[in-house]
Design a protein around this nucleic acid. Structure first.
Lengths: 305, 305
DNA sequence: GCGAGCCACAACCATTGGTTGTGCGCCGGT
DNA sequence: ACCGGCGCACAACCAATGGTTGTGGCTCGC
């Protein structure tokens, strides 16, 4: 491909060969192979060099695009000059949606969204410190190491997600206290994470019955189960993006009085000068949702930073 | 790359190997080579298969994009299913600009803009008939073969392009008759083309002195010459896109009373059912410029079709 | 008509990328 | 605790690829 583009630019095999630091015969072979593979002729051979055929002209911009994409792919993993790499707990929760919003406003930005495997807030912060990732969205219960900063950019109100047969299915809103004793499952929760710590404290505060999860068959299975159940519901973030079939007829019921919110912080190294990091930080400030009137937060998050 | 994506999808080398119809060892080698080339590790090897590393996660979307682009590149030259291929006389004149406008409104459309080499209207129409190209923008002086249709989509008013020292440099507009006797060069004109036929008739109608071009050193050289000359000017289309340095201080002077217009037709096969062709046709109708009050057209274009 | 310039073909060889065979580590069942 | 199955990596081997040099034929300009 690179050879094809070089020849198209040079207008002759000879010169392209010099540019590529190979022999003219090698260029000839490469182009012949490419033409054979595509089944069309890309150049008209003339006495003074070559000229693109119609197929060649049509192919050229695609070839250039391919080289661009290949270059970007290589850059995406080259330490030092790589795209901004941001970790999210999973790709369906509010921070991932916020990142998508950022990308929509700044299309073409070099941004890689990843998910650390088997990570909790400590290992994620360690990954930030080590430079493995540029930033992470986490709830931060403890203290931060020196050089790491965190901004509370997304306090996401919790909602009940329930099927049509659930007693609260028709409610406009409900209080956390009203949930006492009801069975609640949380999708994808893992012990030892800050996510679990949050729901542990929430359960304790309002006497909720958040079931320890048995085998995790994935979010789809959970949503299926909720849709069919009169006794089972789940808690999700307002900004989360869970997609379920319309036939499930699931309802989101806001929780107020107080509103439990999940305190997502944007965590990064203070000395990271990646330009996209700064732009993303500004964007997150700008779209920061307004806080509900009366909120419930875990003890470790009550002083807002 | 394909192997990397297959492994990422399958979650293990073994299964990817079956999908790709090669051995597990070959997959292992390919991935190892890719990792060596990139200088990073893409997978964590586990007992039950593999899992993407952070670098792998960042790399994966780029790899998918690369495969998409490669596929599109191959399709672009595959007869029968290829992108709409449209010929323009050159990439700077109004039809090319119109195509760009179409692409801006319909981004991602499979559209290839090409330029037939050494073609005049007859050979271009023959190329349309043969299916080499889907459509061409041409002025059509003669009759069309059966099955080929042409729509006058773009009557482009001619303007004088002159340097600051030219006698008409300060004029707001001028009549074609006023140009009688003045030296005029036309960029890139070739004898035997419909382009030349148009200017031949225009010259005859108003007693213009359109110089047969000597050696053609390209448009840039022509613009340079005009910028410095008091006696030399050129005629360009209103919709043309010629870029020149600001220091040249070139001026476009509208020609009216009557306004010579160049009648670009959109020419294609009536039986071509390419969806993009229909969309492009509709777009061209929609953006069709209003005709000036009093126009001059060559005799063969006076009945508008 | 002839030389210069450029591309294609042929012969040859190093490297690559595939195969088969094998070893090792991890997890799960007995 | 041990054993067996599963899955990846390494080694040896071989065919195919992709480079090289050498040469021939074509076209254009002098």
């Amino acid at each position: 491909m690179r050879t094809f583009v070089a020849v198209a630019d040079a207008g002759q095999f000879q010169e392209a060969a010099i540019d590529l630091e190979i022999t003219q015969q090698a260029v000839s072979k490469r182009v012949a192979n490419l033409e054979r593979g595509l089944g069309v002729s890309l150049f008209e051979r003339t006495a003074r060099g070559v000229r693109l055929t119609l197929d060649g002209q049509a192919f050229l911009p695609h070839a250039r695009e391919l080289l661009r994409v290949a270059e970007r792919a290589a850059v995406s993993v080259r330490p030092g000059e790589r795209a901004l790499r941001v970790d999210v707990l999973n790709r369906r929760i509010a921070p991932a949606v916020a990142l998508q919003g950022f990308y929509r406003i700044h299309p073409g930005t070099e941004l890689d969204v990843v998910t650390l495997s088997d990570a909790n807030v400590e290992t994620a912060i360690e990954a930030v410190r080590a430079g493995e990732i540029d930033a992470t969205f986490r709830a931060v219960p403890g203290d931060l190491p020196a050089g790491i900063v965190a901004h509370r950019v997304l306090d996401d109100p919790v909602q009940l997600l329930a099927g049509p047969a659930h007693p609260f299915a028709g409610a406009r809103s409900l209080t956390p206290a009203a949930l006492a004793g009801h069975r609640i499952w949380i999708p994808g929760i893992k012990q030892g994470t800050e996510w679990a710590a949050y729901y542990d404290q929430l359960a304790e505060a309002f006497d909720l019955r958040i079931d320890a999860i048995g085998p995790n068959f994935g979010t789809e299975a959970l949503l299926d189960a909720i849709a069919d159940s009169a006794g089972l519901a789940t808690l999700v973030g307002t900004g989360d993006r869970y997609i379920w079939p319309a036939t499930h007829d699931l309802r989101r019921i806001p929780v107020t009085g107080p509103t439990p919110v999940y305190p997502h912080s944007f965590v990064y190294r203070a000395d990271n000068s990646h330009p996209t990091l700064a732009a993303l930080g500004r964007h997150l400030e700008a779209v920061r949702p307004a806080a509900p009137a009366e909120v419930w937060l875990p003890t470790w998050a009550r002083r807002r930073d």
